[in-house]
Design a protein around this nucleic acid. Structure first.
Length: 278
DNA sequence: AAGTTCGTCAACCGCCGATAC
DNA sequence: AGTATCGGCGGTTGACGAACT
């Protein structure tokens, strides 16, 4: 009955990821992509559950992550989108290329909330904050006070305006914005998303040998766009080791002449779909 | 200098819809 | 049709460093 169990949770490691674990996971996903997250940790030699691997990849290791503080423009966009969508962080993140829902959620809770309150704006309703009520008099304290505002997470998000609904319908439009042949070798992030809905990602489609030799395509990418992905490893050695070291360090037999991600050009004109062109 | 408080953010937890069996 | 798992999402936690006393 049903599927096979996700993973044997006994003996699995939890907590912060080590550089070695990052290396193994990145190397595996670069060479094999992922068919299903359940098997990734086993095949990559990690004592983690697939869920943890997916989280680590999507929130930290994905090469297309921007990282760093949100710009003012991004922050404004987050506020606008939050006013329309509420706490639907994944929807908001989908409209900010290179940002994760976790990152936006954290930024909202630690920065934007305070900022809005300082400006006299309720971060939940996006309406002006009510002026503070005068303290209740002694005799007023006896009856039970009216129920306080429910916690914000229990409140339903404001109804999204029509424009969002319409744009979301566009997102669900099955016809692709570009022809499939235009994407011959999606990067792991894209491959990962593709694999989510279709377990047919072949290793070659993620990092093909031809990919490593087509260094000319790297000219389409400003290498300066990738300092953060290097920073993302959070390990000092990676900056010196580079992708080759990263991969070979994990014992993966792949010849990578240059950064594998240099072969991809991220077309920022497609807001809702990360489109990668070689 | 030591102790305490505050802020940040990576990672976990639990839930839910979709889907495989 | 029913059950169990997967993948994804949002809320929360806890470790760590910075700022403050």
């Amino acid at each position: 009955m049903g599927r096979q169990p996700c993973c044997d949770k006994v003996g699995l490691k939890k907590g912060p990821w080590t550089a070695e674990e990052d290396q193994k996971l990145v190397a595996f996903l670069l060479t094999h992509g992922h068919c299903c997250w359940r098997v990734v940790p086993k095949l990559a030699g990690l004592l983690r559950c697939g869920k943890s691997c997916r989280l680590r990849w999507t929130n930290y290791l994905r090469p297309d992550l921007k990282r760093g503080l949100l710009s003012d423009d991004e922050e404004r966009l987050v506020i606008d989108l939050h006013a329309q969508l509420g706490n639907r962080w994944s929807k908001i993140a989908a409209r900010l290329p290179g940002r994760t829902d976790n990152e936006i959620k954290n930024h909202w809770n630690t920065h934007i909330k305070k900022k809005l309150r300082k400006m006299g704006i309720d971060p939940v309703t996006h309406q002006p904050l009510e002026p503070p009520r005068p303290p209740p008099r002694e005799q007023d304290a006896t009856p039970p006070p009216p129920p306080p505002e429910p916690p914000e997470q229990q409140r339903p998000p404001p109804p999204p305006p029509q424009e969002i609904e319409e744009s979301e319908q566009e997102e669900q439009e099955p016809s692709p914005l570009i022809e499939p042949h235009e994407i011959t070798a999606p990067p792991p992030a894209a491959a990962a998303e593709a694999a989510t809905s279709n377990c047919s990602v072949s290793p070659a489609s993620v990092l093909s040998p031809s990919c490593s030799s087509s260094a000319s395509a790297a000219s389409a990418v400003d290498v300066a766009e990738w300092p953060e992905p290097m920073y993302m490893f959070g390990m000092d050695g990676i900056m010196d080791v580079g992708w080759n070291g990263l991969i070979s360090g994990a014992g993966v037999d792949v010849d990578v002449d240059v950064d594998p991600f240099d072969h991809y050009y991220h077309d920022a004109s497609f807001d809702d779909q990360d489109v990668w062109i070689i």
